[in-house]
Write a protein that binds this DNA or RNA. Structure first.
Length: 970
DNA sequence: ACAGAAGCTTA
DNA sequence: GTAAGCTTCTGTT
């Protein structure tokens, strides 16, 4: 083993128990042999090897072993006779499977390692240490906390069931201490399953806190007298010896004299026939089929192995894996690469070959560029990245671009780099750059070549920059969106740097390190060419490598259609919306700003009068001190940092008691909010060239699949209050045009009625009834005719609550009623709509089981913390997961509508343009004469957006109106 | 110059 | 009770 090599150590014994408990207990072969755990084990191992071979850059194994416990007696029993004494015998139907699982390991052609007197964990510790000594890295396939003490710079763990890496940060997050303190922590907490005594009454939280305070166990025991809590101090003093023994028990032995050295663990190429023979013998039909497909083996030509069952704790018999036929077939295959294997080797190369930023080319003459373009067109796939002088793609000027044609082969083409540091003289243009026009003429041939797939990270940005130069980037893939489709909801974003770390184990040069930041920031055109080349070409190189890693994962995770139908096609649609922008009337905003300033100034004076002093009203700290300190208002509550809360809710409550000051502060806040966030800020976003406002939509920012809008955010323009609505009058259509607003009515409740199959809700929607009134009528037995508005209001709050993953606490807050009363409402609601309670419970169970939920279009939203032991964290994740199915499905539906809209409008012969999306609303701009023709098209596309993929059992309803400004159109 | 908290806007 | 982004204030770097 050498530096760069990577050892995978599978905790076989741990795997067995997890597989056994995770699977239905009654899985048996036709002859009655119980094989559930074997099946689970094989599936996990296969998936692990597929994932690792296909994709995981930097963590592709070169060495591999599966480690087992040998017997239950180990050297630890010498230390402490009671060790593992509590452990009951394994279940009867698991016993015969121990041997089979060892056979399975051999059928996979993987070393199967065990040793008398030692636990699997000790062998794992030893091999990890040997690998580290040899300069290699190790991944331990297990989630057992007993192994976490081994985690370090070269050793990490991987939980295959949760698809989760466990490194130093994850250990700290879970246990509150770094891996090297895990031994001390376990010594304190003990382990009831292994019968490690520990110190009674000390759990992980307390142990972590004590270790934080004292540093390590020895110091803690020596200075136990300093512990403040009487009881805790005494138990620790009394149990010091137990803690020391516990430490010896949990500490893993990393110097076992192992029989097989690392050299015998080198990963062998897969032997399809041998494995298939075993799997057929076990009657694992679906896995047999998958292995046959992946290895290019004809399964029908392979005979099933005769599997011999050995009883006992370990199997030590001869190999009985493959029959003669399989052996012969395997030999015939040697030296012949199947397509799948070829794809694997390409992916591995993308991941394994080192990233060397000094190996990149800086292209400064047209001939070299022409050669690269030709090479790229021959390559069929090319990664592409633009460098600009602004993050705003509508203002950005192209500074250069980079290409990568193969992993490690990348180049940067500088176009408009300047000399010097960009001082007052501006600096001259750097000599030896290809004129932009000439370079783009060549680049266009590549970017518009229908036979070359372009790969970008955050494609929309580059596409928009190129669009402004008359270049249409197509066809194209976006690695950011691939990551989003694969891992939406998992921690960590989908930015290139994070993905490079995650998949390639490589930290790219940071943008900041090239351009500086803050005062020393320079735009990219002022970066020296050699630095710029390293940075820019690396981005293209990394993007291409990520593509090699992520693309094959899409089918594995069953998100190909999400990526290809909901993500990728939206990129050009959003690009066009952003490019088009919307007109905003400066005069209207300026007048509003003046009015707001006046109103705020008047209120300010009145506030100072009432308060009896001048202060910064916008400072919650000062305001809280004045209201609840000096003025002595009662009924204040505290925020989590211990400050007085001055939230609108608190101030409203005070106002309701008849106090003047809080009312005025609420009003003042509203006016200043409108002024600073909208009337003052929006004009600054008017593009000097287009005279329009171009928001930026993020496709991969939310967990649920919604879009988000920023710079400026046009998804939170006020509407609730009359004052706020005035802002909307500033969003206008061009002369001779109208804005059309089309929004889905109650889309999330309709989705709920569909997915939860609630007959009463479906009927109410089918009849076009007022859904909140219908709910109220059903719940409280009140006729809809003449229903008091308060009754309807409560039903409405409950309906929203259901969408949000209801809790009595939240509903009580919303309606300002006692929690008990809210709880009664919920109970009553579930009695009337038991289907919804079932639906919520099913969703939670599914999320707990899988770690994610799915929208009806297959989008996966991950909740890695859904199994958190912390009840409030768990409850939060359950609510979010419940909501995500609904919110995410609604988001998918409007995405589908948007993707089809431009073609539908063109088909209808109108020049109407889609401008904005606000979650359940689309805003268009149409010539006056085309408004009538546009509305039915828009409505039809939106109302039928789920079809044909899904036929909803509830009609979608879209309301659409046209007017000169957004306020009147909505 | 930056980060976090508090607060407020939307669906 | 869900999902976002922006502004101000405040304390830290």
């Amino acid at each position: 083993m050498k530096k760069g090599d990577h050892l995978f150590l599978v905790d076989g014994s741990g795997y067995i128990f997890r597989a056994y408990h995770a699977l239905p207990p009654l899985t048996r072969k036709s002859d009655g042999l119980p094989v559930g755990a074997v099946s689970g084990f094989c599936n996990m191992l296969w998936k692990l090897m597929q994932d690792a071979r296909n994709t995981d850059v930097g963590i592709t194994p070169t060495h591999f072993a599966v480690i087992f416990d040998y017997s239950s007696k180990t050297f630890r029993n010498e230390l402490y006779a009671e060790y593992k004494a509590n452990r009951s015998a394994p279940p009867e139907d698991l016993v015969p499977q121990f041997g089979l699982i060892r056979e399975a390991t051999r059928a996979f052609d993987l070393p199967c390692i065990e040793m008398e007197g030692f636990e699997a964990d000790d062998l794992i510790a030893t091999y990890a240490r040997l690998a580290c000594d040899a300069g290699g890295d190790t991944t331990i396939i297990s989630s057992d906390k007993d192994l976490m003490q081994l985690v370090g710079p070269t050793v990490s763990m991987y939980d295959p069931m949760k698809d989760r890496q466990i490194g130093i940060p994850e250990v700290i997050e879970k246990w509150g201490v770094p891996p090297e303190k895990m031994i001390d922590l376990q010594a304190l907490t003990g382990d009831s399953i292994d019968n490690v005594p520990g110190v009674p009454g000390i759990g992980p939280k307390t142990a972590a806190q004590l270790l934080e305070q004292f540093g390590d166990l020895d110091t803690l025991l020596a200075r136990a007298g300093e512990i403040k809590q009487d009881k805790r101090r005494q138990t620790i003093i009394d149990n010091a010896d137990a803690a020391r023994i516990s430490r010896e028990l949990v500490k893993l032995k990393n110097d076992v004299a192992v029989a097989d050295g690392l050299e015998s663990l080198v990963l062998q190429p897969p032997n399809g026939p041998k494995l298939i023979s075993f799997l057929k013998g076990m009657e694992f039909t679906s896995l047999t089929r998958r292995v046959a497909e992946a290895s290019g083996t004809d399964a029908s030509a392979v005979d099933a192995a005769t599997v011999v069952v050995e009883l006992g704790e370990a199997a030590h018999g001869p190999d009985v894996g493959a029959g003669e036929t399989a052996q012969a077939a395997a030999e015939a295959k040697t030296g012949e690469l199947t397509p799948a294997a070829l794809a694997d080797s390409v992916a591995q190369a993308a991941v394994n070959s080192k990233i060397d930023v000094n190996a990149y080319v800086c292209i400064r003459d047209i001939q070299t560029l022409a050669d690269w373009i030709a090479e790229a067109r021959g390559a069929e796939v090319v990664a592409f990245d633009t460098e600009t002088n602004s993050l705003d793609p509508m203002q950005a000027e192209l500074v250069g671009f980079s290409l990568a044609t193969a992993p490690g082969r990348a180049a940067y083409v500088p176009l408009t780099h300047k000399e010097g540091a960009g001082d007052l003289l501006g600096g001259g243009v750097v000599e030896g750059q290809i004129p932009t026009r000439d370079a783009l003429a060549l680049l266009k041939l590549l970017l518009e070549d229908p036979n070359v797939l372009k790969v970008a990270h955050n494609l929309k940005f580059d596409m928009l920059v190129m669009s402004r130069h008359g270049i249409d980037v197509t066809p194209a893939d976006d690695t950011m969106l691939m990551s989003y489709a694969l891992d939406g909801g998992t921690n960590g974003g989908h930015g290139m740097d994070a993905l490079s770390e995650k998949w390639l184990g490589h930290t790219p040069i940071a943008f900041k390190d090239v351009t500086g930041s803050g005062k020393s920031f320079v735009t990219f055109d002022h970066v020296a060419l050699d630095r710029a080349t390293c940075y820019a070409a690396e981005d293209a190189d990394v993007t291409l490598r990520l593509w090699h890693v992520l693309k094959p994962r899409l089918p594995v995770k069953q998100v190909v259609s999400v990526y290809e139908r909901l993500e990728r096609p939206l990129v050009p649609v959003l690009m066009r919306m952003e490019e088009r922008g919307i007109s905003v009337d400066r005069q209207i905003l300026s007048r509003l700003s003046g009015e707001l300033a006046q109103g705020a100034a008047r209120l300010e004076e009145e506030i100072f009068q009432l308060a009896g002093e001048r202060f910064t009203i916008g400072s919650p700290k000062q305001l809280g001190d004045i209201l609840f300190g000096r003025m002595g208002f009662a009924g204040g509550s505290k925020t989590k940092t211990g400050q007085w809360s001055t939230s609108a809710q608190v101030l409203e409550d005070l106002a309701a008691e008849g106090h003047e000051l809080p009312r005025k502060i609420v009003d003042w806040r509203q006016l200043t909010k409108l002024k600073s966030t909208y009337t003052d800020a929006l004009p600054g976003f008017i593009n000097p060239e287009t005279k329009r406002v171009h928001t930026s939509y993020a496709l991969a920012a939310t967990t649920t699949g919604r879009l988000s809008s920023s710079d400026p955010n046009l998804q939170n323009i006020p509407i609730r209050t009359a004052e706020g609505r005035k802002i909307r009058t500033a969003f206008i259509a061009d002369p001779g045009h109208k804005l059309i607003s089309a929004d889905y009515s109650q889309i999330e409740l309709r989705v709920l009625a569909h997915v939860a199959e609630i007959a009463q809700l479906r009927q109410a929607f089918a009849d076009g009834r007022d859904i909140h009134a219908a709910t109220a009528s059903e719940m409280f037995n009140v006729p809809i005719e003449g229903m008091p508005s308060e009754i309807r209001r409560r039903a409405k709050a409950i309906n929203f609550g259901i969408i949000y993953g209801i809790s009595a606490f939240g509903l009580a807050n919303q309606l300002s009623i006692p929690r008990e009363e809210a709880g009664d409402y919920i109970k009553r609601y579930f009695e009337r709509f038991p289907g919804i309670r079932d639906y919520i419970e099913e969703t939670k169970a599914y999320a707990r089981d899988k770690g994610y939920v799915e929208t009806i279009f297959g989008r996966r939203v991950h909740y890695p913390e859904i199994r958190s032991p912390n009840p409030s964290v768990r409850a939060f994740n359950e609510r979010a997961a419940t909501n995500a199915r609904l919110q995410g499905t609604a988001a998918d539906i409007i995405r589908r509508a948007m993707i089809r809209m431009d073609d539908a409008l063109a088909q209808a012969g109108v020049s109407t343009r889609m401008l904005l999306q606000v979650h359940d609303e689309l805003i268009f701009e149409a010539p006056d004469a085309e408004v009538e023709a546009t509305i039915p098209v828009v409505r039809h596309v939106m109302e039928n957006a789920a079809m044909p993929a899904v036929s909803l059992s509830v009609p979608l309803q879209v309301d659409a109106r046209a007017a000169h400004n957004w306020d009147e159109a909505h």
